[in-house]
Design a protein around this nucleic acid. Structure first.
Lengths: 348, 348
DNA sequence: TTGTAGGCGTTATCAC
DNA sequence: GTGATAACGCCTACAA
C-alpha cells in the first residue's frame, strides 16, 4: 500500500523509462507511438503500483474536465430522477460525471449555477430548464459551449435537443377524451415561456379541431409553474367559472395531481364527475387515487440520448444539429371515463 | 470580452504586482498579508478583467477539489431526492459540489463508483449505502477519508452519521396498530445487512412486547431489497401462509406499496381487510390509494445535517464523532383502521 | 522509438 | 509587504 498515491514519475521510474514515454504508453491514443515491449513494461508497472492518473492534473493540461453541468428545475419532481439516471449512466460509461443543479425555475439561481459550473470548467451542459427566449442560451451559443436541451426546445439558438413530440402527445390526450364522449374539455396550460407549455397547448387546440370541438378560451387556465399547487389553483379557477366542462387535459402530471385536490374540495369525483388526463407518466402516478391516465414517453432513454448528443458535441463532431423526438404513448388508467348524460359540472 | 479567460497573471500585470501578491490579495485567508492599497488595486483589476480563479489549477496545487462523492442506492427511490437536495444546497453554500452515484445496492457498482470518485480526488463522501459490515467503510476508515453516513449506521467504523431513530419509529408504528385493536401483526423486515433493517425489526419486537403482543416468527418476512417488488413478494408469502393477521408493518414505504399490489391480487381491501403502515413518508405517498399511514422524518434536513457534519470532517476539525438522530413522527392516513370483529384474513 | 523542455494556473516557501 | 521560485501531475511539440 503506497503511502502517497503513485504518480506517473513513479511508474516511469519503475519501468525505467522517461515520464513522457510512460505517458504515451498509458494513453490509448498514443500507445502506437511506443514499442510493444516498453508499453507492456509500463502498464505492468502501472498495475503493480496501482497507478491512477490524476484527473485534476490532466484537466489542467488538456483543458477538459470530463465533467458536465446538468440544470433541472427540481430533482423532487419525479420526472427528473429517471432522466438524470439515464444521463449519468451514459456519461459515466464515457468517463464523464455530472454536476446537478436545481434551479427551482428561478432565472437568477439558474444563472448562478451556470456560472459556477463554467468556473469549474465543465465540458458542456445538459439543460432541462430552457425557455423559448433565454438569455442564458444566447450567451452559451455566443460562447460556443457544448449544450444539449432536454425535454424542451428553444429553436432560436440552434442547440441539439431530445424531447417527446408534445403536440402529438397532446392531440392523443384530447382524442382519448373526445372518444369517451367529452365535448367541453378544459386545458391547464403549462408556462408559456417553455416550449412544453406552448406545444401542448397547440396540440390541445389541434386535437379539439380534429374532433370538431369548439375551444372555449375561458376553459383554458395558465399555470405559472409545473407544480401541484399551480394545478390546484388553475383547477379551482376553472371550477369557479363553472362553465359545465366534463374533462381536463393538464399540461403535465403535476398539474393533473393538483386537479385532484381541487376536485376533492368540491366533492367532485374523478372520473365519475370529471375526467382528468396528464402528461409524462411520471413514476408512481399509476398508484395514485385514481391512477392517472396520461401520455408517456421514455424518461430514462431521454437521458441517455441527451448524453449521447452532448458527448458528440463535446468531442467536436461538427455535423448538423440533431433534434430528436421520442414518440408519445397514451396510457389509459382510471382517471378518465366515458361522459354519462348527467355528468359534469353543468352550469347552475 | 476577453477571448481567453483572464488569468491570475493578467490580473497581476494589470495591477502592476507580482502574481503571488495578486494571489494573496484575492484569497480571503491571506488578504491580511497584503497592504490595504494593493489589495484594493488587485481586486479592482480582477473585477475589471472578469477574473475567475481556475478551480482545476487550484485543486492541483491545494489538493482540495471542493467536490464530494455521494453514494445512494437509487435516485428513483423518492426518498432520496429531498435528501440530496438538502445535501447539495448546504454544500453549495460552502462552495462544494456533489457527485452523485447510484449503486443499485450492488457492492461491485458501489466499489467502482467509490474508486472513480477517489480518483477524481473528492474531498469526502456522504454515503447512504452503508451496510453493517462493510469492506468499503473499513478501507475508508483506514485511508482516513472524510465520510459521513446518511440514513444508516455502521457502528464498527466510527463515522459520523445522521439518521432517524429507527427503533423509536418502528415502536410508534406498532403502537398505532395496537391501539387500533390489532393483535396479529406482521412485519416485512428490510435487508438485515443494513442498520435500518435490523433497527426497525428490533423496534417492531420491542413495540409488540410493550403491548404484550406475541411475535409470531412466521409473520416476519425478510425483504432482500427496499423495493416495491420485494414488498409484493413478501406480502404474498405472508398471505400464502395465511395465519390470520390483520395488519402489516413494513420496514419502509416502498415495501408497503408493494403490499398494496399483493392485497389487490387477493381482492383484499386496505384498510378494511388489512391495515398497512410504512416508514419514511416519502413524497407522493400521501396521494396513493389509499394514502399510506407511515412514520415521517425530515428528509431535507437529514441532507443538510449530513452536509454540515461532512464539512466539519473535511475542514479537519477533530473533535468527537457526532451521531445525530432525528425524531420520527407518526403520520396517520387511510391505510390503517380499527380492526373489526370479522376482519382480517382468518385461517381457513 | 524515446528523451527534453516547457507550461497548464495556482499557491507555498523562501528571501528581500 | 512584496517578489522570486518552485512545484502540484500531466501532456505534447520538438529534438534526437
Amino acid at each position: 500500500m503506497p503511502e502517497r498515491p503513485a504518480t506517473l514519475r513513479d511508474v516511469a521510474a519503475a519501468a525505467r523509462v522517461h515520464p513522457a514515454t510512460a505517458s504515451r504508453a498509458l494513453n490509448p491514443e498514443t500507445r502506437i507511438l511506443v514499442s510493444e515491449d516498453t508499453a507492456r513494461r509500463v502498464s505492468e508497472a502501472a498495475g503493480r503500483l496501482g497507478y491512477r492518473p490524476n484527473p485534476v492534473a490532466r484537466s489542467l493540461r488538456t483543458r477538459r474536465s470530463h465533467t458536465v453541468g446538468v440544470l433541472i428545475p427540481d430533482l423532487n419532481n419525479p420526472l427528473f430522477p429517471p432522466i438524470v439516471r439515464g444521463l449519468e449512466d451514459k456519461l459515466g460509461a464515457a468517463g464523464y460525471v455530472a454536476l446537478i443543479g436545481n434551479t427551482d425555475a428561478d432565472a437568477g439561481r439558474e444563472r448562478t449555477l451556470f456560472e459556477q459550473m463554467r468556473a469549474r470548467h465543465v465540458d458542456g451542459f445538459a439543460l432541462a430548464t430552457a425557455t423559448l427566449h433565454d438569455r442564458l442560451l444566447a450567451e452559451a451559443a455566443a460562447a460556443d459551449v457544448p449544450v444539449v436541451l432536454m425535454n424542451r426546445l428553444a429553436p432560436d439558438y440552434g442547440f441539439p435537443s431530445v424531447s417527446v413530440d408534445n403536440e402529438q402527445g397532446a392531440r392523443m390526450a384530447v382524442s382519448h377524451l373526445a372518444r369517451l364522449g367529452h365535448a367541453r374539455i378544459a386545458h391547464i396550460a403549462g408556462p408559456q415561456e417553455a416550449s412544453t407549455g406552448v406545444s401542448r397547448l397547440r396540440g390541445f387546440r389541434d386535437g379539439m379541431a380534429a374532433h370538431e370541438l369548439a375551444v372555449d378560451e375561458s376553459l383554458i387556465a395558465y399555470a405559472a409553474k409545473y407544480t401541484v399547487e399551480e394545478g390546484t389553483r388553475c383547477c379551482r379557477a376553472l371550477l369557479a367559472r363553472h362553465p359545465g366542462f366534463t374533462a381536463v387535459a393538464a399540461a403535465n402530471d403535476m398539474l393533473a395531481v393538483g386537479c385532484y385536490t381541487a376536485l376533492d374540495e368540491r366533492s367532485l369525483s374523478c372520473p365519475d364527475d370529471m375526467s382528468v388526463i396528464g402528461f409524462n407518466d411520471m413514476p408512481f402516478i399509476d398508484r395514485l387515487r385514481p391512477p392517472l391516465t396520461t401520455v408517456r414517453f421514455p424518461h430514462y432513454q431521454l437521458g441517455t440520448e441527451a448524453a449521447q448528443l452532448l458527448l458528440e458535441r463535446i468531442s467536436g463532431a461538427g455535423g448538423p444539429v440533431k433534434i430528436l423526438y421520442l414518440a408519445p404513448e397514451l396510457i389509459v388508467r382510471g382517471s378518465t371515463a366515458a361522459q354519462h348524460a348527467a355528468g359534469g359540472t353543468a352550469p347552475a
